[in-house]
């Protein structure tokens, strides 16, 4: 067991090392990349992805998948954006977004647990539905002219550091402790690790799966608000394709799609990597059309390398265990 824990630890450390290497290598080519201002910028640009990745980690830990996050992001941003534009209060707008995200997450969760629809299919359908509802609600128009006070939220800073950045990083750390140290937090990984076992030891599996989808939905809605505040307008294509980037980020950060393995910190580091690749390419003066190819290639390389490393480690551990047993037996005889 301790070996397993050390392996899991290694996985996150590997992700962090990769992030540092990325910054170092790009920094050698172009020293401007590793200035404090740019690193802060990189974190600021990845806030959206960090929030989404943290939410989706809950779902992935239970062994399900949620690809409706892009749709939830767009819909909640559009609805609360229109509310703000028409003079609504910021507090209510945030509440509206969270309710929308929560309700869609609840529907996803109930569909997966009660109707036993595969989560991939359920959330894929929900992604499409959320997009269409967004188009219907906004009449296919962009939501512009958001109030200045709302846009300033993403620009404000505490002690020279972006406020939202501080809040998100603290929240991620708190969520990490919740998932790792608290009894209920550990239920999520337990369900993904061994669902039948979780049922047998009395974990309300279905309820926690629904919770996971609701949390992911709420995180997507919050990401929508961050998006609206940072960009200042919401197009009809806001957040299109973002779900794939976020899943890729979580996988990069060591979250397993078969459930039970991973942490929000890993997923967040993965999110920073995914969004830093874009700006790294700018600093390397590589044309922007390379972005997607490089992200895809990195994802495949890292995941395959990781699987092979873990398998080799497991094989070696098994062999050592067997050898030790044989030696013990011989000594005993």
């Amino acid at each position: 067991m301790s070996r397993l824990i050390s392996l899991a630890k290694h996985r996150e450390i590997r992700t962090v090392i990769f992030l540092i290497l990325l910054f170092l290598i790009v920094g050698i080519v172009n020293p401007d990349f590793v200035t404090v201002a740019n690193i802060e910028n990189a974190v600021k640009n990845s806030l959206l992805y960090i929030v989404l990745a943290a939410g989706i980690t809950f779902v992935l830990l239970t062994g399900e998948i949620d690809i409706s996050v892009g749709g939830i992001l767009g819909l909640s941003a559009a609805v609360s954006g229109m509310f703000l534009r028409d003079g609504g209060s910021i507090f209510l707008a945030i509440l509206i977004a969270i309710v929308i995200g929560g309700v869609i997450g609840l529907i996803n969760g109930l569909g997966v647990t009660k109707l036993r629809i595969s989560s991939f299919i359920m959330t894929l359908g929900m992604l499409e539905i959320a997009r269409v509802v967004q188009v219907i609600y906004t009449n296919g128009k962009w939501v512009e002219n958001l109030p200045k006070t709302f846009k300033e939220i993403s620009q404000s800073s505490i002690l020279g550091i972006n406020t939202l950045g501080v809040i998100v990083i603290i929240a991620v750390i708190l969520i990490h402790f919740f998932l790792v140290n608290s009894r209920k937090g550990r239920y999520f990984a337990a369900i993904g690790d061994n669902q039948d076992g979780a049922v047998l030891i009395g974990i309300p599996v279905k309820r926690y799966k629904v919770f996971a989808f609701v949390i992911s939905g709420i995180c997507a809605a919050v990401a929508g608000l961050i998006f609206a505040s940072q960009i200042g307008f919401i197009s009809t294509t806001a957040g299109i394709g973002i779900e794939m980037t976020v899943i890729a980020a979580a996988v990069l950060g060591g979250v397993s799609l078969s459930g039970g393995i991973g942490s929000v910190i890993g997923a967040s580091v993965g999110a920073i990597i995914m969004s830093s690749i874009n700006s790294a390419l700018v600093f390397l003066k590589v044309p922007a059309f390379w972005n997607s190819a490089i992200s895809g290639l990195l994802l495949i390389l890292i995941v395959v390398a990781d699987v092979l490393i873990v398998r080799r480690a497991n094989k070696k551990a098994n062999k050592e265990r067997l050898n030790a047993r044989v030696l013990n037996y011989q000594e005993g005889a």
Partner: peptide, 26 residues
């Protein structure tokens, strides 16, 4: 053969192949 999840590989493939298409056009 490497026994990585199909979802992960085809997701990476999706980014990679559409990315290569963009690169070729570029």
């Amino acid at each position: 053969y490497a026994k990585v999840q199909a979802m992960v590989i085809t997701l990476g493939g999706m980014l990679l192949y559409s990315g290569v298409a963009l690169v070729l056009v570029g």
